[in-house]
Design a protein around this nucleic acid. Structure first.
Lengths: 90, 90
DNA sequence: CACCATATATTGGATGTCCGATATATATAA
DNA sequence: TTATATATATCGGACATCCAATATATGGTG
């Protein structure tokens, strides 16, 4: 089962726009270990290439946010995720 | 993010013991597409080698069930999963 | 007894994830 | 101006997942 990193990133961005290291920090809080840049940036690149996120650069900071098709993709992925793991959440 | 197939298998076996194709069917129901034998059997083999599941063979059917350490591993994985995906479930 | 269906098991190739190390860019501080 | 900190980005290697195809085993049916 794979594709969850992208899903989690889209989910986190649906809460608020974030830059790369903020995403890494939040994922680190949830997983107990902060992912390396080698995990985050290729994943962001892939989501951008898929048209699910857009960037806004200011100085050295690139803020990522969902595009309309990213929101749609997240919606679909959420339903799939919920169905796949039905019963796992307490 | 990876390691979810093993987690889902342990979770499903915590409900009741199942054989390989039953697991594939249940995963297929949840994901919308039944996984191929090439996905299921290597994963079962890995879980067995990790000591998380045990087998009981009868004729051509091998029924899998959790071991005590499998139950423990599932418990830990459930908490991690819940924490990682907090807020995703409706 | 032969055939069929089902279950198990493997393999090589492909994809996504993951990392550590390294490189580059930018802002801030000394 | 230089040094430092932070952010971004890449890469090769390793691991988990995934499949289709193939092979073997077993039970049931004709």
């Amino acid at each position: 089962m794979r594709g969850f990193l992208g899903f989690l990133i889209l989910f986190l961005l649906s809460g608020k726009p974030m830059h790369g290291q903020e995403l890494a920090d939040e994922i680190g809080k949830r997983k107990g270990e902060k992912p390396s840049p080698g995990t985050i940036y290729p994943a962001l690149k892939g989501l951008k290439e898929s048209g699910f996120i857009k960037e806004e650069k200011e100085g050295k900071i690139i803020t990522y946010d969902l595009t309309p098709s990213g929101k749609k993709a997240l919606s679909i992925a959420k339903r799939r995720f919920t169905k796949t793991f039905l019963g796992v959440f307490p």
